[in-house]
Nucleic acid binder design. Structure first.
Length: 111
DNA sequence: TAGATGACTAATA
DNA sequence: CTATTAGCCATCT
C-alpha cells in the first residue's frame, strides 16, 4: 500500500462525507472531482476497503445508473435502500434512483 | 512477476 | 432494453 493511494482514499472519504443529505453521488463523479476520472473503480474500492464504520455515508454513493451496485459490503441492500429513503430519496419500481432529482451537484468547496 | 478480480464507465452490437 | 468488449488501475492470489 502506497501512501499516495491512501491519500486518494482519504480524498474519496472527504468528498463522500460532504454529500448533503437527500442527495447521492456517483463513483465517476467523485473520481472526477478528485481530478482523476479514470479511477472511478478505485473510488468504489476506497469505500469497500475502508468504510470507516459509519463515518462515511457510503449509501449515498451509487453507480452511474443511479442504482445500487448490488454487492456492497455493509448491512445489505435493504439497509442501504432504507437509509436513502430515510434521507428523502425515493426509488422507482426498478430500485433505481432518479438522478435528475437526487444527483449531488458538487458545490466547489475548499480543497 | 504475472494473471485474475472488481462497490466503474463508455462504446458497440 | 440486455449482452459483450474494452479501457482503466489498485488490490489480491
Amino acid at each position: 500500500m502506497g501512501f499516495v493511494v491512501m491519500a486518494f482514499f482519504e480524498e474519496v472519504y472527504n468528498v463522500v462525507k460532504q454529500i448533503p443529505k437527500g442527495k447521492v453521488a456517483t463513483y465517476g463523479q467523485i473520481a472526477k472531482i478528485l481530478g482523476q476520472p479514470r479511477k472511478a473503480k478505485i473510488v468504489g474500492w476506497a469505500l469497500h476497503s475502508n468504510p470507516s464504520e459509519g463515518i462515511i455515508p457510503c449509501h449515498r454513493v451509487v453507480n452511474r445508473h443511479g442504482e445500487l451496485s448490488g454487492s456492497f459490503a455493509f448491512g445489505g441492500p435493504e439497509v442501504q435502500r432504507k437509509l436513502l429513503e430515510e434521507e428523502g430519496i425515493l426509488f422507482n419500481k426498478d430500485g433505481i434512483i432518479n438522478l435528475e432529482e437526487y444527483l449531488w451537484n458538487p458545490t466547489k468547496m475548499l480543497t
